[in-house]
Amino acid sequence: MRNIWGTRDDERLIVNWNKLGQPDDELATKLSSFIGTIVRDGKNALLIYKNWHKVPEHYKDHIWALVQSKFDLPSHARKWVMKCSGKKLKDWKANIKKNYYKNHLSFDQQKHYKDSRVYADQWEHLIKYWAIEEVKAQSDKNKASRAERKYNHITGTKSFPRVRKEQKNKLGHSPTRAHMFKVCYTKETGTPEATKAMIVCTK
């Protein structure tokens, strides 16, 4: 990401957008990753808010301005950028919780055991929040739900819109939902897992 942060205003990257308002070329991954670097900075997206919807609008305006400073984006792209920012912030919280939050530690011990990129005051807010009984119960429920997930995509960092565009170019027409599911979620066709995936997708 250093090469993107180092670009001048007249070197902004141009991303292609599909009719659904989604980036669908090879720069889509760079755009998404760049947004991730922004929201992981606590000055841009504070971790003290329960979810993205609670983040004040002026922070979102600042994030949009930072993205625009490096990428030449149409105005309608803001909706996608905000959605991506919310997802990146949620993933960032989940990551630091998984790697640094330990139930057996006291508050005084826990507040010193954190990711170096997280501001101390924001970390203390988070560990107090995660210690609330109702929050712990909801977290356990979410973990159980994720454990029951049947299929995981195999596209790596490549976005679904980009995969859809590649498949459209390859097939000569827009891929069906069933075809996209097969490409994104199954490693081989003809296996029992792939068959189940196709059934679910076509329901």
Rank of each mutant, 00 (worst) to 15 (best):
W52R: 00
R40D: 10
H62D: 05
D72R: 00
K54N: 10
M82D: 15
L105V: 08
L105K: 08
D72I: 00
Y100L: 06
S85T: 07
W92Y: 11
N99H: 12
A94T: 01
K111F: 04
A45I: 07
I96L: 12
G42V: 01
S106E: 15
I63A: 06
K88R: 10
I63W: 05
L46W: 12
K54Q: 15
I63P: 00
N51E: 04
V39H: 03
G86L: 13
L46T: 12
C84F: 03
S69N: 14
H104G: 11
Q68N: 15
Q110S: 06
K60E: 01
S75H: 15
Q110F: 05
D91S: 04
V39N: 09
F107C: 03
V81H: 10
K111V: 15
K97D: 08
L66T: 03
D72N: 00
Y100I: 05
R40V: 15
H58D: 08
L47V: 11
K102C: 12
V81K: 08
E57D: 09
K54E: 14
K102N: 08
K83A: 15
K102M: 10
C84E: 12
V55R: 02
R78D: 00
D91Q: 13
W80I: 06
K83V: 14
H104M: 10
D72H: 00
L105Y: 12
K87G: 12
Q110N: 13
L47Q: 05
G86K: 07
Y100N: 03
Q68G: 15
V67H: 02
Q110D: 05
D61C: 02
H58N: 09
H58R: 02
W64Q: 03
N103P: 05
K98F: 06
R78A: 00
A65W: 09
H58F: 10
S75F: 14
H104R: 13
V39M: 11
D108S: 11
K54L: 06
H53D: 11
K79T: 07
K97Y: 13
K43A: 01
N103A: 09
P56R: 00
P74L: 03
A45D: 04
R40M: 09
D91P: 01
H76T: 07
K83W: 12
V81N: 05
A65E: 10
V39C: 13
N44T: 10
L47H: 06
K83D: 14
K97C: 05
S85Q: 07
N95F: 13
M82T: 05
